[in-house]
Design a protein around this nucleic acid. Structure first.
Length: 772
DNA sequence: GAGCACTGC
């Protein structure tokens, strides 16, 4: 109680924040005795053991007490005092804890009791890379603290803010906190920020880490905790000014690792063999097989079905449930991974088994219970960025040792498991890289650079990132933003740049939206932007490709794919039963719903930025051309020209590209804008719409300064038009000059005339006067 | 005439 007397906030606490409600509750004495940034583990436990909730004044429920017992048992609780000591003495703490340590749920609560956010009005934030994690952990912690979700504990993710003025602990996606920082550069609403899953090194986490380091140097009152699951803690410690490290053991079961003695030539074949061998020889327990993509997974499932049936017949094995899993799979199909393994065919017969064949989605995003065996061929599709051609693409490549470890861990969540790696141990040690390259080294940074500018970080070259990005990638981003008019010649944010940065989408898309009012078509452009921001809406199941193509043709627009997307969106908004309608038309309902959500968000941003929401008369001949002009204002850097040999060449880069076969365009328009450059066996441009070369010169004259263009037909055509424009302009000017000269002459004549008139009048008057 | 790992504002 000594501390309580010294607590300057105590009076406030007793009077306000902690009033008992309903008569049955009461103050939590231990809670009221807490002093910010000096609590002990014992004090905190006393607060939790009290009869009443310090945060609400209400008596604790039985449910609370049941959960509390389990929380006390978590590995992280044994280190509570150590953690508090570290955070009292340091601004940064790095915490490493494996699965099951309890760090994500407990550490933020320790911080709540230690910083007493209800006293100074500043919140504790805990960031997650994914939305589901933010919402589900917030719910769990609300239960643990015996409060209603959205009150003292809440979450904030895109499209959903579940917080209130009472919120002291907020779980949010890292992207959300970054957005907040764009309008509050010092994150002044927070007294502590906990960055969770930092080892994943997502783009947003990396930026956020840099930002927090920057903020910490300006705010000595803020505490920052970086939590990670890997043992690569030294890098984090070093980055955060030699921060102290706390290691918390996890709670998982051992996983035995097996390697192949020789390298496998065909990993798909090897994977299927291994799965069936496990089924034939290993005890009960489900299998998780990692493959790289949809097509491979469907193929593997077909083979497993065929050979599995054969095996079951011959070897009297139990029945198999084979389930594919990838993110674009419809939700009802995804649910299948939670089904139980099938029962034995006869009582006492061999047990059934579930085989989940999955992409990386099962590595971090989805947890499947009951997995005992993991098969890891060692490959995944990974994003790579080529700044030279400004293209992001997906490439099947070997995973890292950290990812392999993560995959193996999936076998030991419920009991001891086994992991079969389809590569040699030597290969694991010598060929695999230690960590997957962080996303920031594999991405186009256009949007990120704009965000950084908005965050008040101007010196990008000396930006303090954990892994600095390649200068060429930065250059490309700056170049793009400069051409869009978002940055001036000194790389400072312009008014346009401020506007663009308000939109949570690609800068080109945002530019298209803010240009739309010039063409009176904001509403339509918002719809197109939303449709371009979601995964492909068109489904094309292998068994119904023709029917799907026919359904798609119904939406085709002769101007191109963007207008077809607009047709789809309008039709979707007009249909009465979206679910049935989507099924009938081979459309992805999930994507359309997402598009609708995004459109609403974009509309709100536009309205807030005073961008008028306009539409042209649908029957006007200009309706579509005006939309295409607005698109050109955003995408003038992604234009291709059809050369006379029938090949498209991208403008300025002179890359040979093909219209993607998914395009609705049946003819080949001479000039097109494209949304995406797809790099597979060939170079494709996907989602394509016809434009006019005159527009390019009108709308983006700074980009279409032809002197810097490599020679090609497109350039010659543009030059001709430019010449014509120049001549026309000259002619116009000449005419204007002539008109001016003649006007001047007229004016002079008029003046002369009027002078003469005056003189005549005067003379006449004089004459009259004389006569008098 | 062909793909679409996964997130996120």
């Amino acid at each position: 109680m000594e501390a309580a007397r010294n607590n300057p906030y105590l009076a406030h606490m007793h009077n306000g924040g902690n009033a008992a409600t309903g008569g049955q509750g009461g103050p939590n004495e231990a809670f009221n005795a807490l002093v910010p940034l000096s609590t002990t583990s014992a004090q905190q436990e006393a607060v939790e053991n009290d009869a009443c909730n310090g945060l609400t004044g209400r008596p604790f429920t039985q449910k609370y007490k049941d959960i509390l017992a389990k929380r006390r048992d978590l590995p992280v609780n044994k280190q509570r005092q150590k953690f508090l000591d570290l955070i009292h003495k340091n601004q940064f703490v790095v915490l490493v804890g494996e699965t099951g340590s309890g760090k994500t749920t407990q550490i933020p609560q320790y911080m709540v009791f230690d910083m007493l956010p209800q006293v100074d009005g500043k919140m504790i934030a805990c960031t997650q890379p994914r939305r589901v994690a933010a919402t589900s952990v917030a719910q769990r912690v609300a239960d643990e603290l015996d409060v209603k979700l959205g009150q003292q504990v809440g979450y904030s993710i895109r499209f959903e803010d579940c917080t209130s003025s009472n919120t002291v602990l907020k779980y949010c996606t890292d992207g959300m906190l970054l957005r907040e920082a764009m309008s509050d550069n010092l994150l002044s609403r927070y007294s502590a920020v906990i960055l969770d899953e930092a080892h994943e090194r997502t783009l947003n986490t990396d930026i956020l880490m840099s930002l927090m380091k920057n903020i910490a140097s300006q705010r000595s009152d803020i505490k920052i905790i970086v939590m990670s699951a890997t043992l690569d803690s030294e890098k984090f410690q070093k980055y955060f000014n030699d921060a102290p490290l706390l290691t918390v053991p996890g709670r998982t079961f051992p996983v035995e690792i097996y390697y192949t003695p020789e390298p496998e030539r065909d990993y798909l074949e090897a994977a299927i063999k291994t799965a069936l061998q496990i089924h034939a020889a290993e005890p009960e327990g489900d299998i998780l097989l990692f493959l790289t993509g949809e097509e491979e997974i469907e193929e593997a499932c077909r083979l497993l079905h065929a050979r599995g049936d054969d095996l079951i017949r011959r070897a009297n094995c139990g029945p198999l449930l084979i389930v594919p899993l990838y993110s674009t799979l419809p939700p009802n199909m995804q649910q299948k991974i939670f089904e139980k393994a099938p029962e034995p065919r006869s009582k006492g017969g061999a047990p059934g088994r579930k085989i989940v064949v999955s992409t990386n989605v099962a590595e971090t995003s989805l947890t499947i219970d009951g997995i005992v065996y993991v098969i890891d061929p060692g490959f995944a599709k990974q994003k790579v960025y080529n700044p030279r051609v400004r293209v992001e693409s997906l490439l099947v490549s070997p995973i890292s040792r950290a990812a392999a470890q993560q995959r193996a861990g999936r076998a030991g969540r419920t009991r001891p498991g086994k992991c079969f790696r389809l590569y040699t141990e030597k290969s694991f040690n010598n060929d695999l890289i230690e960590q997957t390259y962080p996303e920031i080294l594999r991405s186009n940074l256009g949007s990120i650079v704009l965000q950084l500018k908005k965050l008040g970080i101007n010196d990008l070259v000396h930006l303090d990132l954990m892994d600095p990005c390649a200068p060429e990638v930065l250059m490309r981003a700056l170049e793009l933003l400069h051409y869009l008019g978002a940055l001036d010649d000194d790389a400072n944010l312009t008014d346009i740049g401020h506007l663009i940065s308000e939109f949570p989408i690609d800068p080109q898309l945002a530019k298209m939206i803010i240009s739309a009012p010039n063409y009176g078509c904001t509403n339509e452009v918002l719809s197109i932007a939303a449709m371009l921001s979601v995964p492909n809406v068109f489904l094309r199941p292998r068994e119904a490709q023709r029917a799907a193509d026919m359904a798609k043709a119904e939406f085709a627009h002769m101007d191109g794919d963007h207008m077809s997307l607009l047709n789809v969106y309008h039709a979707y908004k007009g249909c009465s039963e979206p679910s049935q309608w989507c099924w009938d038309n081979f459309l992805q309902l999930r994507s359309l719903k997402a598009a609708d959500n995004i459109r609403e968000q974009l509309r709100r941003v536009a309205a807030k930025s005073n961008i008028p929401l306009l539409s042209n008369d649908f029957n006007s001949a200009d309706y579509y051309p005006k939309i295409r002009k607005a698109m050109t204002a955003g995408y003038f850097m992604q234009v291709a020209h059809l050369e006379r040999n029938g090949q498209y060449l991208t403008v300025k880069d002179n890359q040979i590209v093909l219209l993607h076969p998914s395009s609705v365009l049946e003819r080949k328009p001479e000039w097109v804008v494209y949304n995406e450059f797809v790099l597979t066996k060939r170079h494709y441009i996907r989602t394509v719409t016809e434009v006019k070369p005159e527009w390019l010169l009108d709308i983006a004259p700074h980009y279409y300064d032809l002197s810097g263009f490599p020679p090609c037909e497109g350039k010659r055509i543009l030059e001709k038009i430019a010449l014509k424009n120049a001549l026309a302009q000259e002619e116009q000017e000449t005419r204007k000059r002539k008109k001016e000269t003649s006007e001047k002459k007229d004016k002079k004549d008029k003046k002369d005339r009027s002078d003469k008139d005056k003189k005549d009048k005067k003379d006449k008057k004089e004459k009259r006067d004389k006569r008098k």
